[in-house]
């Protein structure tokens, strides 16, 4: 799964521009599942298992990632931008970015040597940042970039021991696990949704869930791991190397207690997310139609929404095994 995740992390797919990633996924799964693409761009798949499911289970991973969108080009050829999804200014400065057509730019700022004392201690305001694509005039810039074009951080996936350092592990981790599940031989039939526009308000999941109309849902995600030196243990949220994290509550969902207890009782390596933070597609999925019992299974990831997300490949394997068992349990109808 490591090589698959590396490939997935190399394909840019800022919210609303998921086409290339969707094509890649279709190519991966087309021999293993039935699929269709809805009006929003969601990829909805049906996987035939060894037996017919007693309960219809939907497994979701979002395709999109956070990024930048060009909003204005200055007379000197610099590109002003907005962020798509939440990105802190702290991780954008002096970063290379690459637009959809391959144009490379850097997020520039005043050199440290020219800063006054206060300026050195304060991050520049987001609206003072710009992308330098090398153009000297607006006309030159407009030959390669148009407003509305999106960019992602320029980064190639790198190995760090048993970990992977890459852009967009949120949520290519979920996508990698879901593709692998579709390629496997599950006990029961299930539905898989690769959704769009999670980072701009869970928009894809809303319509995909309506279409599938599941009895239960599992969200495959990446979540903040704050197991960093100096962070108090009650603020670590979850830790790398301890298996996938399941959530009882986050900023978008108070999870179904019965489902959480079922999952937590599975004798497969996992951890419980010990902090109420973040949010994901579960927020839209669990409110679909008359309500859907939903659980999130996440890959613990340090430095999420930055150009350099760090996650454990061992946790990724555990996440696959855990999800496979959880889906089978839910589809069997036992306990729900």
């Amino acid at each position: 799964m490591k090589e698959l995740l590396k490939k997935l992390c190399s394909i840019p797919a800022v919210s609303g521009r998921e086409e290339k990633l969707r094509e890649f996924i279709i190519n991966e799964i087309k021999d293993y599942a039935e699929y269709s693409v809805d009006q929003n761009g969601n990829l909805i798949c049906f996987k035939r298992g060894k037996s017919r499911a007693k309960k219809k289970v939907m497994v979701d991973a979002h395709m999109d990632e956070v990024g930048l969108i060009a909003s204005y080009i200055t007379d000197n050829g610099f590109v002003r931008f907005e962020t798509v999804g939440g990105i802190d200014a702290a991780v954008m400065l002096a970063r290379k970015v690459v637009f959809e057509n391959g144009t490379v730019g850097v997020v520039g700022m005043k050199p440290v040597h020219m800063l006054s004392g206060d300026e050195k201690k304060t991050l520049p305001k987001a609206d003072s940042l710009y992308i330098d694509i090398g153009a000297s005039t607006k006309e030159e810039a407009e030959k390669v970039i148009s407003v509305g074009d999106t960019a992602v951080f320029y980064s190639e996936p790198l190995d760090m021991g048993n970990n992977l350092l890459a852009r967009a592990i949120d949520d290519r981790a979920g996508v990698a696990v879901l593709i692998s599940l579709l390629k496997g031989t599950p006990e029961y039939d299930f539905y898989a949704t690769f959704t769009v526009k999670e980072e701009v308000g869970l928009r894809g999941a809303k319509t995909a869930t309506f279409t599938v109309s599941p009895d239960a849902a599992v969200i495959l995600e990446a979540t903040t791991a704050a197991d960093i030196y100096g962070v108090a243990s009650d603020k670590k949220v979850c830790s790398l190397g301890q298996g996938p994290a399941i959530s009882f509550m986050d900023r978008s969902t108070l999870y179904n207690k019965k489902l959480f207890d079922l999952a937590n009782a599975l004798p497969i390596k996992h951890q419980v997310k010990e902090y109420v933070s973040g949010g994901n597609n579960a927020g839209a999925v669990h409110l679909s139609k008359g309500g859907v019992p939903t659980l999130t299974v996440s890959l613990p990831t340090r430095y999420i929404h930055s150009p350099s997300c760090l996650a454990s490949l061992l946790d990724l394997e555990d996440m696959y095994t855990f999800s496979e068992k959880l889906i089978a349990l839910l589809a069997s109808g036992e306990g729900l």
């Binding site: 939440g86 802190d88 702290a90 991780v91 790198l158 190995d159 760090m160 350092l165 903040t224 704050a226 960093i228 030196y229 962070v231 603020k235 949220v237 902090y275 933070s277 973040g278 340090r302 430095y303 999420i304 929404h305 930055s306 350099s308 760090l310």
Partner: peptide
Amino acid sequence: FTAVFASTPPHLA
């Protein structure tokens, strides 16, 4: 070895 400077997780910023 490849390494990365830690960024502050959003809930701690």
